[in-house]
Design a protein around this nucleic acid. Structure first.
Length: 594
RNA sequence: CGGGGAGUAGCGCAGCUCGGUAGCGCGCUUCGUUCGGGACGAAGAGGUCGGAGGUUCAAAUCCUCUCUCCCCGACCA
């Protein structure tokens, strides 16, 4: 591609609304532009990257017997009503009405359509298992898009769905996808780790997230450097007994203490000169739960130790709640508690579910609120002073907590979820009546798995982990072009133009992806754009070199400059392309899933 | 949805406090000189100052409403 023909623009300064580095670099390099909040357009160079990534996805999906299809973005609401998600999902699901008044949705994922499709085509166990995937636009009306391409509303996703005759078939297939995902990210030059994750609104029995470790990530992960334990904070556990154990103490009598204006745990610990671990934190929430097909709100009183944070995902799962929201002060007072001074001692229990973290029973003589403004209670003890309805782990693992496997301290890091895989089970096949006849002639719902990767996120994450002050540093496998050819010709050096043109044609014909900077620009401009665009191999043809029959080679990921003979340029470059490619592929992780 | 910030030329910004009819840098066009890490000179093009109302002789500037974008939080298959 000749730069003089290329539709692109590089910017010296990043747009003011780009905050994260990948976003800034992508706009500055002319890969993408932002159209609206969480809505982007891809320019030619950006699209080349996207296509390369998607080619890798296709190859890896095809390698595990995936078959590509395309499903619609705009779908009838009736499908979503059948699975109930029309009602369950809130404003994230974009809804619209057509001219005839029919309700439609913009697909945020494709379980409904694919399940109906599979149900319609598959009628016998002989047709199973099967894996279908697509690379398609999704729309999610996110409350707050952010981070450039990290969190957007419209995005492209590779989503795959597998259908199985039984769970063991899914269990056999799932690890293949797990490895295929490592292959995809590895081939794209992106380091990821896989962590167990919450199944969330997808339902299902097992799920993994593939995380790119970067500061701009929205998820927190807990890793154990000693034994390799790793999990999303949403599900991470830790050994609580080792965190400030107090189980040996004798329970002491309750005692009121005046604590005027002390309405946070931190203030309480400071005021009474005790560690936060000697306090009990009361949290008031309202859960939406389903009972006999009816949704209702349930007041939930949660007690965790003062030095712990509530993990809402764990709580949601423990309650099997649809939703959780903080309780209003009036609702808190209605059960006889006081915001800022809450404790489970002496509250009205009729309509309250009391959830107690499993660390509380072993923690004696805690300081808790007195349900009276300005007062706390010394020596609150579980069971003696209050009876929990549920005792369960509901606190978040944090940096330094003991690993649940080996007790070494956990390390917390930020990550971007670039892909995920789920064992869905039969949630959707039952709802959509996607059944088949098994060997015994029985009608059985198919067992499903689903597997997603966001293209844009993958690109943004690749940049977040590969850049320097001058710009992007692409892995050669996903770079928009493999080689950036700089011509330093001027009007007085036609021989340089001629040499550069010749090199361009030769490389192009040999199949090397060349971005040829034939612009009438100064050397500095070209070199800076080459760096900003991050093309892995830079080849410079200038008067000095042409005189000696050489061109200059520099790799974007290094500083070394060396000369290559012009008369052997194609071979030389192909060797470099190959070795750069191999260097990326050498890092693909093989990680069997237990 | 709560809190904070910002909308002035393609990009980055000044001007607003104290109203007087819009400016700087980069980029862009033309000509000349230059030519190995973002050149120099000269001459240009380009803006309903996010939008709508209002106050005023006069509004980028003051008032009201509204839209949009960014950040923190809530949320996040």
């Amino acid at each position: 591609m000749r730069m003089t023909k290329l539709f692109f623009q590089t910017l010296r300064e990043a747009p003011a609304d780009a905050d994260v580095r990948s976003h800034q670099l992508m706009v500055r390099a002319g890969l993408v532009r932002q159209v609206g909040a969480g809505i982007f357009e891809y320019l030619p160079l950006g699209l080349r990257v996207k296509k390369k990534i998607e080619t890798i996805m296709r190859e890896e999906m095809d390698a595990i017997d995936g078959q590509e299809i395309v499903m619609p973005v705009v779908q009838p609401a009736s499908l979503w009503k059948r699975t109930g998600r029309w009602y369950e999902i809130g404003d994230d699901l974009a809804r619209l009405t057509d001219r005839a008044g029919r309700e439609l949705v913009l697909a945020m994922t494709h379980e409904e359509v694919i399940t109906e499709l599979a149900g319609g085509v598959i009628s016998s166990y002989r047709q199973l298992p099967v894996m279908l995937y697509q690379i398609q636009t999704k729309f999610r009306d996110e409350p707050r898009p952010r981070g450039g391409l990290i969190r957007v509303r419209e995005f492209t996703m590779k989503d795959g769905y597998s259908f199985h005759p039984d769970i063991s078939s899914l269990d056999e297939y799932y690890p293949l996808v797990y490895q295929a995902y490592f292959n995809i990210f590895g081939r794209a030059g992106l380091d990821v780790i896989a962590v167990e994750s919450d199944t969330g609104m997808m339902g299902g029995t097992m799920a993994h997230e593939f995380m790119a470790l970067t500061e701009v990530g929205e998820d927190t992960l807990l890793l154990c450097d000693a034994c390799g334990y790793k999990a999303n904070r949403q599900v991470a556990t830790f050994v609580k007994a080792d965190v400030d154990d107090q189980s040996e103490e004798e329970p002491l009598p309750l005692e009121e203490v005046s604590t005027p204006g002390v309405d946070t745990i931190a203030a309480l610990a400071r005021f009474l000169e005790i560690p936060e671990s000697r306090t009990a934190k009361a949290l008031f929430l309202v859960a939406t739960v389903e009972e006999e097909g009816e949704e209702r709100e349930q007041f939930v009183f949660v007690v965790v130790r003062g030095d712990m944070e509530l993990n809402e995902t764990k709580l949601t799962n423990a309650l099997k709640a649809r939703q959780l929201r903080p309780a209003q002060p009036e609702e808190i007072r209605a059960i006889g508690a006081e915001p800022g001074y809450g404790s489970p001692v002496g509250i009205r229990r009729d309509d309250v579910v009391l959830v107690v973290d499993d660390l509380i029973p072993g923690s004696t003589n805690l300081v808790a609120g007195a349900n009276r403004e300005g007062w706390h209670l010394w020596n609150v003890n579980c069971d003696r002073d209050f009876r929990p309805d549920i005792i369960v782990d509901v606190v978040a693992a944090a940096d330094g907590h003991p690993c649940p496997i080996c007790q070494a301290p956990l390390r917390s890091v930020r990550g971007v979820e670039v892909g995920n895989i789920f064992k869905l089970g039969t949630k959707y096949s039952e709802a959509m009546d996607a059944t088949f006849l098994d060997e015994d002639g029985g009608s059985v719902p198919m067992v499903m798995g689903c597997y997603g990767i966001g293209s844009g996120r993958l690109i943004a994450s690749a940049i977040e982990t590969n850049f320097d002050d001058n710009g992007i540093i692409w892995p050669i496998t996903i770079a928009p072009h493999q080689l950036y050819l700089v011509s330093l010709a001027t009007r007085r050096t036609p021989e340089v133009t001629e040499a550069a043109e010749q090199v361009y044609c030769q490389l192009h014909e040999a199949g090397v992806e060349v971005l040829y900077d034939d612009r009438d620009e100064r050397a500095g401009v070209k070199f800076n754009d080459a760096d900003l665009l991050g093309i892995p191999i830079r080849l410079t043809v200038g008067a000095r070199g042409v005189k000696n029959g050489v061109a200059e080679l520099k790799l974007r990921n290094g500083d070394e400059v060396r000369e290559l003979p012009l008369d052997d340029i194609v071979n030389q470059i192909q060797l470099i392309v190959d070795s750069e490619t191999e260097a990326v592929l050498a890092r693909v992780i093989t990680e069997p899933l237990q």
